[in-house]
Design a protein around this nucleic acid. Structure first.
Lengths: 150, 150
DNA sequence: CTGAATGCAAACATTTTGCATGGAT
DNA sequence: ATCCATGCAAAATGTTTGCATTCAG
């Protein structure tokens, strides 16, 4: 995988540096990580890596197609490795649980938009809503409230 | 519409202020506006409205169900009025054009996830990708590049 | 009058930029 | 030796917070 890094960098006349290797590895190991997560992880191994390097490197890695980002919260974006198979993110806004789904989940959507000539970026998709558990618990609370008023 | 504002505020023991009216009106008039857009628009009519008031008010208006927000870029969120019928946002990452689609576009997706007990927040959905026009123009460029190399 | 809402300033979180230095090729 | 990449510091961007003041109810 990291051979990929060297190869792709070379293709573009870019250079292989320890930081770039570490940052790519961090993304691969962390799963869904914000730039800050990546920074912390890299720093736990090697001191003195700079935040701006993380930002610049994530940008490069994304251009090379080695990582991708999505927005799983209203805050910082999260990056993940493209060695994972492509997936759609489904996020519960209440408990913040993130589940990954097979791209076939949005097959009909992709098909419908492709009729308009639009190509969906499936890997970037984040679908927000409320998960089963949270719906159940908030329903329980509503019932409890009702009962206590009687 | 603004009667709604007064009514809903009262329900919650909150107060009707000129700022709240202006900010709601701004969102309605602007369509898809960032907090900063809203601030600028309101200030063009009345001087001295504060950014923090805009943030706090948008939060209140969203809790009251009068506005909604989505993320149409990697930058600031955009707010729109809920008097518009609910819609799904489709965004071209290249030309940044935003098209609104009927929620039926994601009907199958909503149905599939509801089988897992997950309720999709359709109005918050933003689907990124590349539109027909941009695909066509980038293809033209690719061909032009190829030809010039021969 | 009372407490909710505003303005202001400062803090905070995240990201970007310019520039000198360092290091990969 | 070249010039890309890094570190550092400062600035830019977007948002939140505490507190005194104001004003809606």
């Amino acid at each position: 995988m990291s051979d990929d890094l060297a190869a792709r960098l070379r293709e573009q006349g870019l250079r292989l540096t320890p930081q770039r290797q570490l940052i790519l590895r961090a993304v691969e190991e962390l799963g869904h990580a914000t730039p800050d997560d990546v920074l912390a992880h890299v720093r736990s191994q090697v001191s003195s890596v700079n935040a701006s390097t993380v930002y610049r490197t994530l940008e490069v890695l994304e251009e090379l197609g080695l990582v991708r980002h999505t927005h799983l919260s209203d805050r910082a974006p999260t990056y993940h490795s493209t060695t994972e198979h492509e997936h759609v993110h489904v996020v519960c806004r209440r408990c913040h649980a993130v589940r990954s789904y097979d791209p076939s989940l949005v097959g009909p959507l992709v098909a419908a938009l492709s009729e308009d000539g639009f190509t969906v970026d499936v890997g970037h998709l984040a679908i927000f809503g409320e998960c089963a558990e949270c719906a159940a618990s908030s329903e329980r609370n509503a019932i409890a409230r009702t009962l206590s008023k009687e």
